[in-house]
Simulated scan of single mutants.
Amino acid sequence: MLRPSSLSSHLRRRVCVRQQEAVLLQLQPQRRQKSTQVRVIITRDLPEGQKRGIYAGEVHHVAAGYARNYIIPQKYGVYATERNFERTGVVDPDIAASEEEELEEEDSEELKAADLLRKYLRNKQLKIKRNVDPNNPTMCHPGHVSASNLRDKLSKQLLIDLEDHELIHIRSEPVPGLEDLEDGEIAGILLKDESASTEGDGIVQMKPESDGADEASQVKKCDVKIKQLGEYLAKITLAGGFAVPLKFKVERR
């Protein structure tokens, strides 16, 4: 047990320590609380919109107090809820960005698949034999070569089984010296026939015929029938509208 004199000294020391702690706390920089932010849909131009860069039809993150005390009560905007996006007709930029990223990833995978098939077919040519007309040895008789025949031959000769949505389209005119043409020249031939653009090295991407049309309606089945011997070029249309060249030769049996 402490004596009264010792107790007094002890209390003075404690008070001194407390005072020192208080001074240290005052000297420490005060931490500002981070203001909570909320997302709002701006429905009317703000008077100070140009200064803040906030305009009608946009979605912004703002301080919760700014939204609660000014934007919402003054009818300059509404909270960015799913219902309010539907009501105002404004597209949620977060969802739009996510969907765009998914589409880009999907297109990338489809392009990779097309490029893989292009490289596999690059130095290959289907051989299809037909009987010919005795009076015209350059013409098939009987029979012809159709997209269906190419699909079957592709499966048997090169072991490539196409999906139902992967279509073959035949270029009706023969292409002499097809084996000696470069990838860019072959892609150029395909580009002459339809509205398309090139993607990568020798890959063609078909452009939609009209806005809003689905992919199935954009690509029609091929009704071309080859009846003359020679070298021909076809294209295999894959998902995403990507098309790769397919070389084939119709020979005398």
Rank of each mutant, 00 (worst) to 15 (best):
P47I: 04
N69T: 07
T36W: 05
G65D: 15
N69V: 05
H60V: 15
R31A: 11
S35T: 15
P73I: 15
R83S: 09
H61V: 08
K34C: 09
Y76P: 01
R31E: 14
V40I: 15
T36C: 04
R83V: 11
T36M: 07
T36N: 07
Q74C: 11
R68L: 13
P73D: 10
H60W: 14
R68F: 13
N84C: 03
Q30W: 11
K51S: 13
S35R: 12
P73H: 11
H61D: 14
I42G: 01
E58A: 10
H60D: 02
Q33D: 07
G77Y: 05
K75S: 12
V40Y: 01
Q33Y: 10
V78H: 06
N84D: 06
I41H: 00
L46I: 03
R44C: 06
E58C: 11
A63K: 10
A64E: 15
A80M: 02
G49R: 06
Y55W: 13
A80W: 01
Y76G: 04
L46V: 01
E58V: 09
P29R: 12
Y79L: 13
R31T: 13
V62R: 02
I71Y: 07
R32A: 12
L46R: 04
Y55T: 08
V38F: 07
S35P: 00
A80K: 00
N84R: 02
I41Q: 01
R39I: 05
H61A: 12
A67Q: 04
P29H: 10
G65E: 14
V78L: 13
R32V: 15
Q33I: 15
G49N: 08
K51H: 14
R83N: 04
Q74E: 12
A63H: 09
R68V: 12
I41G: 01
P47V: 06
A67H: 06
R83P: 00
L46T: 00
T43I: 15
T43L: 10
V38A: 03
Q30G: 02
R44M: 05
E82A: 10
I42K: 02
R83K: 08
Q30S: 10
Y79K: 04
P29S: 10
P73F: 15
K75L: 13
H60A: 09
E58N: 10
F85V: 02
V62T: 06
Y79G: 00
H61W: 15
A67E: 04
Y79W: 10
R52H: 11
I72K: 04
G53V: 05
